[in-house]
Amino acid sequence: MSEVAIGKESSEFKKGLQAGISIGIGYFPIALTFGLLAKTTGLSIYESVLMSMIVFAGASQYISLSLIAYGTGIVEIVLTTFIVNIRHFLMSTTLNEKCEDDTLGNKMLYSFGITDETFSVAATKDGTATTGFMLGLNLLAYSSWVIFTGVGHLIGASLPQTLQESMGIALYAMFVGLLVPSLKKSSKVLFLAVLAAIFNSIFTLGGVMAQGWSIVVSTILSAVLMELIEMVKAKHWGVNDEK
C-alpha cells in the first residue's frame, strides 16, 4: 500500500520536473546575464549565487544590482524588493485553492519556489496540483536559476548576441503556450486575458505605475470585473456558463 503511494508521489514529482523544463530553458539566458551583471556590479560569485539561492526572484534581483550601482542603501533596496514581489501574495492565494491538502510544512517548503513562471504552469495545469508536482516543478526552475547564475559569473560573458536576444522570447512564449489551450476552449478566458493585457499596457506604457504593481492591479481589476459580469448574467438571464 505504502509502496503504491510512494510510486504515485515520485511520478507526480517527475511530472513536475517535466513541466518545469520550459521554465528551465527560459531562465537560462536571464540567469546567465544576471551572473554576468552581478560580476560587473562588483558582487563576488558567492554573493551572486547566494542571492539567487535565497531570493529566487528575477526582476527584483536585477533591480537590486542597478540600485547597488547607484549606491542606494540597504533599506531602500529591501523595500523595493518587497514592492516588486508582493504580487506573489496573489499568486499563492490562488494556488492555495488548487493545491492538494497537505501539511503546512510541505506547503511552506514549496511556496518558496513560487514565481510568475512556476505559478503560471501550476495554475493552468489540469486537475489538482499535488505536493510532488509542485516540488518537481519548483526544483527544476530553481536549479536552472541558481546554476546558471554561477555559470554566468564564472565565464563572465553572455551568449552570442543573436542567440541571447532571441532567447529573450522564451518565457513569454511559454506564457503564450500555457494560455492558448484554455483560451481556445472558453471565451471567458480570452476576455480575461485581453482585458488584463489592455489594463497592463495602459498602466505601464502610460507611466501610471511601476510594472510590479501594474500586473497585480490589472489582474485584480480584470478578475473582479469578469466575476461581476458573470454574477449579473446569472441573476438577470439565469445564464451560467461557468465550467
Binding site: E97, L179, L192, A196, A197, S201, I215, S218, T219, V224
Partner: peptide, 21 residues
C-alpha cells in the same frame, strides 16, 4: 472571492505577456 481567484491565472498571463512581448 473563489470565483475571482479562478479568474486570476488567465488575467495574470494576459498581463505577463502584454505589452512586454
Amino acid at each position: 472571492i473563489q470565483g475571482v481567484l479562478k479568474n486570476v491565472p488567465y488575467a495574470t498571463l494576459g498581463a505577463l505577456i502584454f505589452p512586454a512581448i
